[in-house]
Amino acid sequence: MSILIDEKTQVLVQGITGRDGAFHARAMTADGTKVVAGVTPGKAGEKLDEIPVYSTVKEAMAEHRVDATVIFVPAKFSSAAVREAADAGVPLIICITEGVPVLEMIHNYSYVQERGLRLIGPNCPGLISPGKCKIGIMPARIHKPGGIGVISRSGTLTYEVVYNLTMAGMGQSTCVGIGGDPVIGSNFIDMLKLFEADPDTTGVVVIGEIGGEDEEAAADFIREHMSKPVAAFISGRSAPPGKRMGHAGAIISGGKGTSEAKVKAFHEAGVPVADKPDEIPGLLAKMLQAT
C-alpha cells in the first residue's frame, strides 16, 4: 500500500507539450507511471510519443479515466490550470510550478476545497510511491519500496533524505513534496493523517523549514493522533531573519517561523529532530525497534 497514488493511478499532464511538461511526462512514463493523456490548449489531436494530447482537461476526461493531474504550466497560467482541473473534478491535483502569486493561491485553495478535491503544491517536486507510480520531477532510482512515509516542503533536500533512507535499507511507502510556498494546497497534517491510516506505512519523516507555523501544528497533531513513530528535520537553522531563503515561504517574519520554535515544538511532542539528514535513518530505526 501507499498513500494517494499507486500502480493503478492514471495520470494527466497539463502543459505536456512544454519543455518541462514533455521532459517529465516521458520520465514519469519511463519510471512506470500510467500517463494516459496530456493537455495543451490548441494542440488537440497531437501526440507526445504515444500519449494523446487534448485541448482541455474536460476533453481528456471524456476519453480517459483520470485519477490525478500534474501541472507544468508557467506561473502566469497555473491558477487557471488548477481551476480547470478542479472544474473537471480531478480528485488529485499536483501543481509543480514555482512563482504562483500568493493571493491567487488563497483563491485556488478555497476553489479546490469547495469541490471536495485535493491540491498538492505549488512549488513542489510532486509525489512518488516507489515501484508503483511517480507524479513529479524527483529521480525515481534513489527510492526503494518500503514502509517509511516522507513529507517535505523541499525538493532536493527530500532527495537527500530519501537517499539516506534507501542506503540504510529503509524503503518508502510514499514521499510527498508539499511545496515551499507560503500558501499550499495540502499541509503536513493532511499527509500525516493519510500515513497514520495506511497499513503499510510504519514510520514517517517530516522535513520542515523556517517560515510559517505548519511544523508547530504538525507537532501538536503528532502528539495527539499519531501512533506511528515520526522523526523530523528542519532546515534554515542558520538563516537570518527577514531574508527569503530561496523558497517564497522560507522567511522568518514578525518573529514567527523560527527554527527554534519548530524544533522545540517537535521535541515537546516527542519527535526527535535530526541535526543532519544522514542521522534520520538511525533515529527512525531506534523508534521502530522500540515499537
Binding site: 533536500l157 515551499g180 538563516a239 530561496g246 541535526d275
Partner: peptide
C-alpha cells in the same frame, strides 16, 4: 547548492 531546502540545510551543517 541546487534547491533551496538543500541549500539551507547545507548552511546549517556547515555551522554544525
Amino acid at each position: 547548492v541546487n534547491g533551496a531546502g538543500l541549500a539551507m540545510a547545507t548552511l546549517d551543517i556547515i555551522k554544525l
